[in-house]
C-alpha cells in the first residue's frame, strides 16, 4: 500500500521537475485509468495485454491534463494550473460516476491472493506484484533519465529551463513528456492497487491526499526518497489501525504532513537549491 502512495507521489515529482506544476487530479487519473482497464477486461481483453493498453490510456490522459489544464497557465506564468487540475479531477470524478456508477467494483486479476511467509512476514503474491511493478517502473524511468539523451534533456529542463531551450531542447515538449510519463505511472498505480482496494470513483480522494503527503514529506525532488516515506507511511497506517482502531488509519499521514511542513519544508530528502554566482 505504501508503495502505491510512493508511485503516485513519484508522478508528482515527474511533472514538478520539468514545470514546477503538480496535477492535483492525479488521484482521479489513477481512478480513470483503473476504470478504463477494468472495461478492457470486461470486453475480454486478456490481463497481460490490458496492462500495456491501460498504460497507454494513462499516458494519453496525462497528455490531456497537460494540454487542457497546465500549458496555458504555464505560458502565462500564472498559478492557474492549481485550480484547473483540481477542476479536471472533479470533472473526471463525475464522468466516472456517470459512466461506471458509484459502486466500488472488484478488479479481477490472475495473480493469486494466497499468502506465504518469508522470514516470518506474511506476504501475498498481490503485494509482491505491487512491489515489482512499482520498482520496475521507477527503475525504468530513472534509467531513462540517466542513460538516454532525452532523459538528460528532461533533467536539463528541470535544472534551467531557459538554458535548456538554448541547447535546442523544447521545454514544451519536455513538459508534455513528463505529463505523459506521470500518466503512465498513475495508470500503473491504478492497475496494481485495484485488485486490493476495488475500483470506485472515490478511490482517488484517499490516494491523492496520501500521495501528496508522501511527496511533500520526502521532498518534491527526492527521487527514491518517496519509496522510503511511502513504505513508512503504509506501515504506520497499518499499525495505527491495528492498535488504535481503524478509525485512526488516516491520522499518521496527516500528522506526518504537518510535521514535515513545520520542520523540513524542503522535505526530508529534498535538497535546498544552492546557486553559485
Amino acid at each position: 500500500m505504501g508503495l502505491v502512495y510512493a508511485l503516485v507521489a513519484y508522478g508528482f515529482q515527474l511533472t514538478y521537475a520539468t514545470s514546477k506544476s503538480i496535477n492535483f487530479g492525479q488521484g482521479e487519473l489513477v481512478m480513470l485509468s483503473a476504470f478504463c482497464s477494468l472495461t478492457l477486461l470486461d470486453w475480454g481483453v486478456p490481463y497481460w495485454l490490458m496492462i500495456p493498453l491501460g498504460l497507454i490510456i494513462g499516458a494519453l490522459l496525462g497528455l490531456v491534463v497537460e494540454r487542457a489544464a497546465v500549458r496555458l497557465a504555464l505560458e502565462q506564468k500564472s498559478e492557474g494550473w492549481i485550480l484547473l487540475t483540481i477542476i479536471f479531477g472533479l470533472f473526471a470524478f463525475s464522468l466516472a460516476e456517470n459512466i461506471w456508477g458509484r459502486d466500488d467494483r472488484p478488479f479481477p486479476t490472475p495473480i493469486p491472493s494466497d499468502s506465504f511467509s518469508v522470514f516470518g512476514v506474511d506476504l501475498t503474491w498481490l503485494e509482491v506484484s505491487v512491489a515489482i511493478g512499482v520498482f520496475g517502473i521507477m527503475g525504468l524511468i530513472e534509467l531513462f533519465k540517466r542513460r538516454t539523451l532525452l532523459g538528460k534533456a528532461f533533467e536539463a529542463v528541470s535544472a534551467d529551463r531557459d538554458a535548456a531551450e538554448l541547447m535546442g531542447i523544447s521545454a514544451t515538449q519536455t513538459v508534455m513528456l513528463s505529463y505523459g510519463l506521470s500518466g503512465v505511472v498513475a495508470a500503473l498505480a491504478g492497475i496494481l492497487i485495484s485488485p486490493i482496494t476495488t475500483v470506485g470513483p472515490t478511490m482517488a480522494m484517499m490516494l491523492i491526499l496520501k500521495a501528496f503527503s508522501v511527496a511533500v514529506v520526502a521532498g518534491l525532488n527526492s527521487g527514491f526518497g518517496v519509496v522510503l516515506v511511502g513504505l513508512v507511511l503504509g506501515a504506520l497506517e497499518n499499525l495505527a489501525s491495528l492498535y488504535l482502531g481503524s478509525g485512526w488509519r488516516e491520522a499518521p499521514g496527516l500528522i506526518l504532513l504537518i510535521m514535515a511542513l513545520a520542520l523540513r519544508p524542503n522535505g526530508i530528502f529534498g535538497k535546498a537549491t544552492i546557486r553559485k554566482v
Partner: peptide, 29 residues
C-alpha cells in the same frame, strides 16, 4: 552562451557538454 553562464548545476560536466550537442545527436542511445 548566456550571461551568467547558466550551466546545468545538478548534472555532471560531461552531461552538460553532451546536452550542448543535443541538436545533432540521437535522442536515445
Amino acid at each position: 552562451s548566456p550571461e551568467g553562464r547558466k550551466i546545468f548545476g545538478p548534472l555532471s560536466v560531461e552531461d552538460n557538454l553532451l546536452l550542448g550537442a543535443y541538436r545533432r545527436l540521437p535522442r536515445f542511445f
